[in-house]
Design a protein around this nucleic acid. Structure first.
Lengths: 171, 171
DNA sequence: TGGATTACGAAAACTGTTTTCATTTTCGGC
DNA sequence: GCCGAAAATGAAAACAGTTTTCGTAATCCA
């Protein structure tokens, strides 16, 4: 079985888990379940990578064209509040949203050639940050590390570009 | 001689250097020298820390109240283009500008209590990032690391807050 | 000093996001 | 199953930060 296939299967379970967790959150907050919200969250959780509001809205509109920006924004805020989704800003002026992926916390490498965003995690890096903070009498709540540059494997980079999925998550 | 004093003196030389460098840049680009631009850049270079457009405009207006947002924005773009200034975004939605300080490259710790922004640099951290990029066949052009958290020395933190210079640069 | 070129400032435009408001939907209690 | 309070929706307006436009003014080289 190809790893990709396996990943997809796992993902589907994860998606259901998240939908359930969100339903829980909504109920605990005394909010209501609506068709639009369900459409938006299930669309979102099935998308991979770092999704902009516009990307999400486009997908959502394919299911229900009457859904507008306002509802998507509002739902994304709820998702963030629920802790199921994180908001990121990579400096191109628009917010991107990321359902927690396989790795709980991670940092990013952003290829400026093809727009691909890779995730990585390194414990030594985390530890080093902690010790630096310690030295400066600082307590870290969260951090953000982004490496901007280029895939060295230009072929792959260019291929990705050609496939037109710039800014999509690593797959 | 107090370190602060010394720093201030050094700074004044640096400011002159930068004004000259900018004048150079302007000339090489075939642009014109204007009173407004001079006011803006010399005000900017004399401010410390991570300056927002509004903060800069307020200062500038004390010298020449007729200068407006447009000119400040335009001049800041030129400063960035000249390489003398870097634009930063810390996620509060507004751009901040930073004249290169003593340390050429550095990262940031941002106190969420008092808004203070500390700069730091650590060669091991840089090296570690390089080796991680290498492992992933990635070439880093630039990076950004921000630690969000709190000064552990709450007293100092609260004092700074009381002094009302939240979000000001380390001094 | 003239005149082409660039810069200025005020206001309008623009972008991404949030809010408003009138209407519709949800859902616990009957 | 229906009522009604509470919440959600969608279209449009509002908003904040930034950029552009446009008519006027300043710069600076020949």
């Amino acid at each position: 079985m190809a790893p990709v296939k396996k990943f997809r299967e796992l993902d589907e379970n994860l998606v259901r888990q998240k939908e359930a967790a969100f339903a829980d959150f909504i109920q605990k907050k005394g909010l209501k379940t609506t068709r639009q919200r369900n459409t938006i969250i299930s669309t979102f959780f099935r998308l991979r990578g770092h999704i902009s509001v516009e990307e999400l809205l486009n997908q959502v509109k394919q299911v229900n064209p009457r859904i507008g920006y306002a509802t998507v924004y509002r739902t994304l805020h709820l998702l963030v509040e629920s802790g199921l989704v994180e908001e990121r800003r990579f400096g191109d002026g628009l917010a991107r949203y990321e359902g927690h992926s396989d790795v709980e916390h991670h940092d990013h490498m952003i290829c400026l050639e093809c727009g691909e965003i890779f995730e990585f995690f390194n414990p030594r890096l985390e530890a080093l940050q902690e010790s630096l903070a310690e030295e400066n009498n600082f307590q870290i709540f969260r951090h953000r590390l982004e490496l901007y540059g280029a895939c060295k494997d230009k072929d792959a980079c260019q291929k990705r570009k050609a496939r037109g999925n710039a800014a999509a998550g690593a797959e």
